[in-house]
Design a protein around this nucleic acid. Structure first.
Lengths: 349, 349
DNA sequence: TTGAAAGCGCTAACAG
DNA sequence: CTGTTAGCGCTTTCAA
């Protein structure tokens, strides 16, 4: 027989049956009264409610979940930064993505559980997750397959396309980068350089390909500096490399920083290396960092729209969960170029 | 009779009883085999495990929780920023606090659920939370009382002290501010100004009191600029007010920015107003923003140690949960002044 | 060494 | 209109 696992020191919690006994009614009646279901006389309903209130009754959420067959809980894990599993929140992109995911889910009655970046399904097998959001999986990581094998619906970026149970939302990396480069060119840039993370997400692969194609189509030289790890230090170092390295192809006259860095620091690095922005160098940062609006000059950014990605994706996931669909579905979200002073060539010279 | 709430299209999940039938054993035996409990013959144990593996069995976490009497889930809600319930993640302080809370909890087998800032217990009553962490409650908000009334253990800062079931961890605002001001004075500052958020957290109240006492004790003039809302714009505006306002008491020669802002932007604002840091103005920012290490000059920061606060607090909470203690317990975490170039007076003038 | 049965707290089907 | 009862999937006691 099961002994109720009573915590020492805690008063045992009030259960439905306690309320029923107190009110002189049955469990069913009280349940119906509290949930607003069934057809009960107003008097009885009020009696049940009153007793529940008086006794401080709160339904046991776990029991409800068991009955309902789902927990209304979704996991959230990021693919990148497995080496430092919690730093992702310090990136404005992921902070916004995470917040908007939680907000959207909660609005639909689902709660979001934070999972460490790069962790695997079996590390949190004890959580009753209805689905998992995998933000920016890296190429070849096991997490997505792991989840699908376990029969857990997955929501992620487009790299999961085609696997049953895997749904996606993504921004079009190629279009985004082409748009930014076209803008720079229109403002007069002829030798745009790029700073790119070394990571292996689908987005970064798309960025690299788009940049190469764009340069090739215009017979322009490529100039790429890779950053080893996330963080302002490495990115600033890469910016300096991009601005100073290899003399032969000429100094770059524009810079597209795809790695996440603080815009004011990027500007400062440019200045330090003898560039006045935007006179000598047009600058665009792929960034969600709000400081971009407050620099002098203000910094042009390419936003990957994490909030829209999260909102659209989560809505789609909810729909899939409630309808029990299983075929892959996907949605594109457009990126947005916020043109500010740093990328507008001043009139004449 | 209850019809199993079957999702359309989903293959029904493998249950313990299915594995038992397949293996020709009883539920009990299979359960014991998989959990490593009981005394079973190695052969039987292996047979059960093999069947489970083959059938892709995964235990139903909700059922286990119901049995266990708890969900190993803790909620995380912040008191501030109720007007924009998800922006807290974009603050480096909360990003680190949140990440470290989740990390510590998960290490002890608890998962963290993100809740919107300023929300109330009843909005997430359906979640089986074993406890809730309330980060930086604001004076007079209902959330803590709400939770305690519902019998849910609460972990928060020291402002909850004395209420049964409420445990806390905090940094000593007075000591932190005194330390920073003493440092500035030692470097030669005589007219330190301060930028402070308008918010009503216990920490900010402590900061204000400490600053006033410190100035009074030295017969120095107070100069305080308040920021209306979080965000770089308002804080930078307050910085400019602090640096330019009221001529009578003389220009400030040091600035302590308690509101969270990007250090490079604060430096830039100082420069724009004719101050060269550190020659004309010693600068200390209360900030966890890593950009402080990369500015020129590098920026002195006062760290509130969110990661340590989270770690210590969460460990304490876990201990309380497992032991069922109910008396309030509390811990202090020391703040840390990272002295960098912006607050070191250059030799002579 | 193994299995039958009780029961965690709740909701829903069905009988009264 | 209300109450009795089965059962969600699991673990654990107790008997065989």
């Amino acid at each position: 027989m099961t002994e109720a696992p009573r915590r020492p020191g805690k008063p045992p919690r009030v259960r439905l049956v306690d309320v029923a006994r107190e009110a002189g009614l049955s469990k069913t009646t009280v349940s119906a009264a509290l949930n607003g279901t069934g057809r009960l006389s107003p008097a009885v309903r009020e009696k049940a409610r009153e007793a529940a209130r008086r006794m401080g009754y709160r339904p046991n959420a776990t029991a409800r979940q068991l009955r309902a067959g789902r927990a209304r809980l979704i996991g959230y894990v990021v693919g990148e930064r497995a080496h430092a599993p919690w730093t992702f929140l310090e990136s404005p992109y992921f902070a916004q993505l995470t917040g908007a995911t939680a907000a959207t889910a909660l609005r639909r009655g689902y709660a979001v559980v934070l999972l460490p970046a790069g962790s695997l399904q079996q590390e949190w097998a004890d959580l009753p997750l209805d689905a998992v959001v995998v933000a920016d999986p890296v190429a070849g990581d096991r997490i997505v397959d792991d989840l699908l094998a376990a029969g857990i619906p997955v929501f992620s970026d487009r790299s999961v396309e085609g696997r049953a149970g895997a749904h996606w939302v993504d921004v079009d990396a190629s279009a985004a980068i082409r748009g930014a480069l076209d803008h720079l060119r229109q403002e007069g840039a002829r030798r745009p350089a790029m700073v790119l993370p070394g990571s292996a997400t689908g987005f970064h692969a798309g960025v690299l390909a788009a940049y190469r194609d764009w340069c090739a189509a215009r017979a322009l030289p490529e100039r790429i500096a890779h950053t080893a790890t996330p963080g302002n230090g490495p990115v600033i170092a890469a910016v300096e490399r991009a601005l100073t390295g290899c003399e032969k192809s000429g100094r770059p006259d524009a810079l597209l920083v795809v790695a996440e860095a603080s815009p004011p620091l990027v500007l400062e690095a440019a200045r330090r290396n003898g560039y006045e922005v935007p006179r000598d160098l047009l600058l665009v940062c792929v960034s969600e960092d709000m400081t971009a609006e407050h620099t002098r000059p203000t910094t042009t950014t390419l936003s990957l729209r994490p909030q829209e990605v999260a909102r659209v994706g989560t809505e789609l996931l909810m729909a899939v969960l409630e309808e029990g669909r299983t075929e892959t579905s996907g949605v594109w979200v457009p990126s947005r170029l916020d043109v500010r002073e740093s990328s507008r060539r001043p009139r004449s010279g």
